[in-house]
């Protein structure tokens, strides 16, 4: 009953604060929309290398919409590809064309393929077969947004829940209402759990709206089940809010909560899979398993990009719940500062 009272109070407070609701829902939608436009821009001119192209074809293709460089041997082209001077090279082996793409950036791949289709169709009669397309990295159907989307979804949930829960609890402390709460028969675990449930309910609503918008509005790749996405975001939100509450204990005002962002939130982006984890330097790698966002991003990608189910994500869920329980226990312990019992 006390727990319920606290949950109701938190929800009432959130509903009153229209601007914060707007921030939590509109800001991620706005950013995702912008990223969608940024990553899916179509005006990129691909850089193509030619190796062994018949002269008649070359003159025709040179007129097409691409930056073209000619190489004497395939080895030179491969080197150029490795140095990011090229996005792809076109190779003719006795009139059989092969395109080799660097492939790591889906939006670039798209441009290359588009160029290939439009320009080769004009000279089709000279080519004996359809071009063979080879990817060094990546695949043909993915966009960058599909690849980063799940990570960003997790990040927004984490970031905003962390911020709002931390600041709410800080306010509870600085306005004296926490002390007033502790002068009532409420138990410390009820306070922490009440906050977790109250903000958890809001986080699940926030996550549903943002995820639905990204998937159905922006067309983010979604191979798996929506309910798993919600499950992961809820688990991540609980981790974020319990961490936010815990860190707010060490802050004296709102600005000091903001100061935790570069320490507790931003580094998680590096280890979330937005950047390639295999290239992280050895002496930083031990941090990866300590960042909650890593588990959430991994699970979200498995669900959304690879269409995987419970058997592939339950470990990530368990890790997130483990973090949450750890933070909840630490929070209850931190409240001892205000009341010993």
């Amino acid at each position: 009953m006390r727990l319920l009272a606290l949950v109701i109070r938190i929800l009432q407070q959130i509903i009153r604060d229209k601007r914060t609701i707007a921030l939590l829902i509109v800001a991620p939608i706005l950013i995702l929309t912008m990223l969608n436009l940024v990553f899916n821009g179509k005006d990129y001119v691909p850089k193509i290398g030619f190796v062994n192209i018949p002269d008649t074809l070359e003159t025709q293709l040179l007129a097409s919409d691409a930056e073209i460089t000619t190489y004497e041997t395939e080895k030179q082209a491969i080197e150029a590809l490795a140095d990011h001077e090229l996005d792809a090279y076109l190779l003719f082996d006795s009139m059989e064309p092969t395109v080799v793409l660097e492939g790591s950036d889906p939006s670039v791949n798209g441009s290359v393929i588009q160029w290939l289709q439009s320009s080769l169709s004009t000279v089709q009669q000279d080519i004996q077969s359809e071009p063979k397309i080879e990817y060094i990295y990546g695949s043909s159907t993915m966009s960058s947004f599909d690849y980063f989307g799940p990570v960003l979804l997790g990040f927004f949930v984490f970031f905003f829940t962390f911020l709002i829960a931390g600041i709410s609890f800080l306010r509870e402390r600085t306005t004296g209402t926490l002390e007033r709460l502790l002068a009532s028969p409420i138990r410390k675990w009820e306070i922490v759990l009440g906050y977790t449930i109250g903000f958890g309910i809001f986080a699940i609503i926030q996550a549903s709206i943002i995820a639905a918008y990204a998937i159905y509005g922006l067309g983010l790749l979604m191979e798996g089940a929506f309910i798993y996405v919600l499950l992961i975001t809820l688990a991540l939100a609980i981790t974020a809010l319990t961490l936010g509450i815990l860190l707010s204990t060490f802050a004296n005002n709102e600005l000091q909560i903001i100061q935790f962002i570069p320490l507790a939130v931003v580094p998680q982006i590096f280890f979330s899979g937005l950047f390639n984890l295999d290239t992280i330097s050895e002496w930083l790698r031990w941090i990866i398993p300590l960042t909650p966002l890593y588990y959430a991003a991994d699970a979200l990608r498995n669900i959304m990009v690879r269409g995987m189910g419970w058997d592939m994500i339950y470990q990530d869920v368990l890790f997130l719940l483990g973090f949450s329980i750890l933070f909840i226990v630490l929070n209850i312990f931190a409240l001892r500062r205000y009341r010993k019992i």
Binding site: Q13, R16, G176, E179, R180, A183
Partner: peptide, 9 residues
């Protein structure tokens, strides 16, 4: 308490 511990919202 000395300070008004109330929820202003």
């Amino acid at each position: 308490a000395q300070s008004d511990a109330l929820y202003n919202e």
